[in-house]
Nucleic acid binder design. Sequence first.
DNA 1: GTGGTCTAGACCACC
DNA 2: GTGGTCTAGACCACA
Lengths: 122, 122, 122, 122
Amino acid sequence: MKFNKPKAIYMQIADYICENILAAELKGGDRIQSVREMAAQVEVNPNTVARTFSYLQEKEIIFNKRGVGYFVAEDALERTKAIKKEAFLKNYLPEVFKMMELLGISFEDLQALQKANESAAS
Amino acid sequence: MKFNKPKAIYMQIADYICENILAAELKGGDRIQSVREMAAQVEVNPNTVARTFSYLQEKEIIFNKRGVGYFVAEDALERTKAIKKEAFLKNYLPEVFKMMELLGISFEDLQALQKANESAAS
Amino acid sequence: MKFNKPKAIYMQIADYICENILAAELKGGDRIQSVREMAAQVEVNPNTVARTFSYLQEKEIIFNKRGVGYFVAEDALERTKAIKKEAFLKNYLPEVFKMMELLGISFEDLQALQKANESAAS
Amino acid sequence: MKFNKPKAIYMQIADYICENILAAELKGGDRIQSVREMAAQVEVNPNTVARTFSYLQEKEIIFNKRGVGYFVAEDALERTKAIKKEAFLKNYLPEVFKMMELLGISFEDLQALQKANESAAS
DNA sequence: GTGGTCTAGACCACC
DNA sequence: GTGGTCTAGACCACA
C-alpha cells in the first residue's frame, strides 16, 4: 500500500477500509484483521493502525470485542455512506462548483472528463 | 475573514487573491495591499501574509518591486487559470468521480445539487 | 447475557454471581454450575469463566472440591457484603459526591431519580 | 499530579481539565497550556497530553487555533456538564442504587456518609 | 513557538 | 492471541 504525503497515513488506512465497506467487500459482522496483522500488511507501525481503528470505532463504523478483535458494525454501510456523503456535500462540492464557474467548465465537459478518466484507469 | 477550514491559512488567503484575479477584480499590473495592510484587514499575523505573497510570487502570479510593493503579473489570469485547472483535474476530480460512484450520485443529481447550492448562497 | 460495559467480562460474571448470593438465591454450600456449563450459558470462553471462579475463590466467596466442582462458602453472604460495601465506600461514593457537587444535584433530586429508575426497570 | 492505575492517564488529565471548567476556573475563550507545557507540569510524555487534547477537542470542549494553541470552547461549561451528567446518570447511578439496595443503605445513611466524607477531606 | 504524525519498543489486562 | 496505553524521540507544516 502506498501513501501520499498530504493526508495522514492513519486516515488513508481508514479510507481504505471504508471503501471496502462501501464496495461490500466488508460486511456487517465481519472480523477485521488484527492491529498487528494489518500493520504488517500495509507496512506501518502498529500504533498507526491502532489509531485508525480507534478513529473508526469512534465513528461507530467498527466495534471491538474484548480480546478478540475488531468487527464491522451491522450498520457500517449506512454510517459510512452518511459520513462520506456529508463530507462530500460539505467540503468537496462547493469547491467543485466554484472551480467549474471560475474555470468555465460545464457539465458536458465534466462528463467527458469522467469518461477520459475511466478509460485511463482501465 | 474566517479561517475555519482545515486548509492552511496562508493558502486560504492565496485562494482569496486568486479568486479576485479570476474574477478580474485584480488585473495585470495592479498593486496589491502591503503585507501589513492585508494582515490587518484579514486579522492574521503579518508573517502569514508574507508567506502567502512568497507562495504567489513563486508561482509567478505576483511579483515584487523592491521597496514599492507587490504587483499582479501581466499574465496572472492565464497562470492562475492554468494552475487551478491542473489542481482541479489532478486532485479534485478523481476524488469526486470516486465519490459519485461509491455513493451512487449521478450527473443529474449533481446538477440539482448545484442549483440548490446557488440558491442557498444567494 | 450481554457484556457491553467497559468492565472486564470475567468481573461482570463475578458480579452476577455475587448478586445471586446477596439475593439469597445462592446459599452457603450450594453447588455452582461447572465452568463449561456456565460458559455455555453466558456464551463466553470457558477460560473466562475459569478466571471468574478463580477470582471468587481468591476472595473466599466460593471454594473448590477437587473433581467435584465449586461451592458457595458458608459465610459467602457476609464476605460478599463486606467486599461490596468496602468497594462502594471507597470507590463509588467519593465520585458520586463529587459529581453531585459539580453538577448541583441534591439528595432530593437523587431520591427522585431513584424512583424514576425503579419504575423504568419494572 | 498523581495518577491512579485503573484509569488511563490521558483520561485523568481530561477529567482534571473538565473539573476546572466546571469550577469556572477555566472559562470560554481561555487559552490552555500548550501540550509541552502541560506535559512538563504533570510530568508525562507530550504524546499523552496530545491525546487528552485530541479527546477533548473531539468532544468539542476545547478547540484549536492553528499554530497558536488550544482554547476553551464558549459553551464548554454546558457541554461538560451535559457529558458528565449523562455519564453519571447512565453509568454511576444505577450501580449506586443497586448497591444501596443490596447492602441495605438508606438515603439517611448516605447523607451521614457524605458529612463524614466532607470532614475527612477538610 | 504551536500542534500533528509516525516510529520503535515496552508493559499491561483481558480472552 | 487480542487491543490499550505509555514513553522516547524524531520530523513536519504552520503561525
